[in-house]
Amino acid sequence: MTLSALIARVEEGTASSAELDGAIFDALSGPGVGSAREAAIDRRERPNWLPRYTTSLDSVLSLIEQKLPGWSWSVHRDQAEEEGRQHWATVAEPWAHGRVIETAFLTSPARALLCACLHALEDGKADLADATNGDRPAPKASP
C-alpha cells in the first residue's frame, strides 16, 4: 500500500483500526521484519507487538523517533471543532530553523500526528533508508 493510500485512510478514519495499524507497520518496516497481516492471520488475532498507531501517541512518537530522528513535533487541541477535527499536529525538520514542515487536522491527537509524520515521509522530506539508521537524510539535489 502506498503512503498516499495510507494517509487517506488515516484522514478518513475516526476509531482504532488494527488493520490500518498493520498496513502502516508493513509499509514502513524493513525487509525481514515479517508481515503484520500474516502474523494476525496466523494467530487469528491482533499481534500484541503491533504498534497501535491509530490510537496511541506513544506508538506514533516511536515511529517518529525511528523514521524522522531529531525532528520536532507538537500536538494541539482546538476548541473550535470543525467537522469533528479538533486536534492538529505538526512535525518539523531539526535543520528547518523552527519552520513547520507538515501539519494535519484530525479527530484524535494520535491520528493527527501520524498523518503529519506520513506526509513528511511521503513528501520526501525524510529519506526512509537513511532515517531508519538515525542518520540525517542527504540533501536533495536541486534541478
Rank of each mutant, 00 (worst) to 15 (best):
M1W: 08
L3M: 10
L3H: 05
L3R: 08
A5N: 07
L6Y: 06
L6S: 04
I7V: 15
R9T: 12
V10G: 07
E12P: 00
G13V: 07
G13S: 14
S17G: 08
S17Q: 04
L20W: 12
G22L: 15
A23N: 03
I24P: 00
I24F: 05
F25N: 02
F25C: 04
F25K: 00
L28H: 11
S29M: 13
S29T: 15
S29K: 14
P31R: 09
G32E: 12
G34E: 10
G34D: 09
G34W: 08
G34R: 04
G34S: 09
G34N: 11
S35N: 13
S35V: 09
S35C: 12
A36N: 00
R37T: 13
E38K: 07
A39M: 13
D42N: 15
R44P: 01
E45H: 05
E45R: 15
E45F: 00
R46A: 00
P47F: 03
W49S: 09
L50S: 03
L50V: 10
R52L: 10
R52H: 11
T55K: 00
S56C: 03
D58V: 06
S59P: 02
S59H: 01
V60N: 01
L61E: 09
S62M: 06
L63V: 11
E65W: 02
E65F: 02
L68T: 07
P69T: 05
G70H: 12
W71H: 12
S72E: 10
S72T: 14
W73L: 00
S74G: 12
S74R: 15
S74V: 07
V75D: 02
H76G: 00
H76W: 03
R77I: 03
R77P: 01
D78Y: 04
Q79D: 11
Q79F: 02
Q79V: 06
A80Y: 07
A80N: 12
E82L: 13
E83W: 07
G84P: 01
R85W: 11
R85G: 06
R85Q: 14
Q86R: 12
A89H: 13
A89P: 08
T90D: 03
T90Q: 08
E93W: 07
E93M: 14
P94L: 06
W95K: 06
A96V: 06
H97K: 12
H97I: 05
G98C: 05
R99L: 06
I101S: 10
E102P: 01
F105Q: 11
T107G: 08
S108E: 12
A110S: 13
R111L: 10
R111H: 07
L113R: 01
L114R: 09
A116P: 11
L121I: 09
D123I: 01
D123S: 11
D123F: 10
G124D: 12
K125T: 02
A126E: 12
A126D: 08
D127A: 14
D127Y: 08
L128G: 02
L128D: 05
L128H: 01
A129Q: 08
T132R: 15
T132M: 13
N133P: 00
N133F: 06
G134P: 05
G134S: 10
D135F: 14
D135Q: 14
P137V: 10
P137M: 12
P139A: 10
P139D: 13
P139Y: 09
K140Y: 08
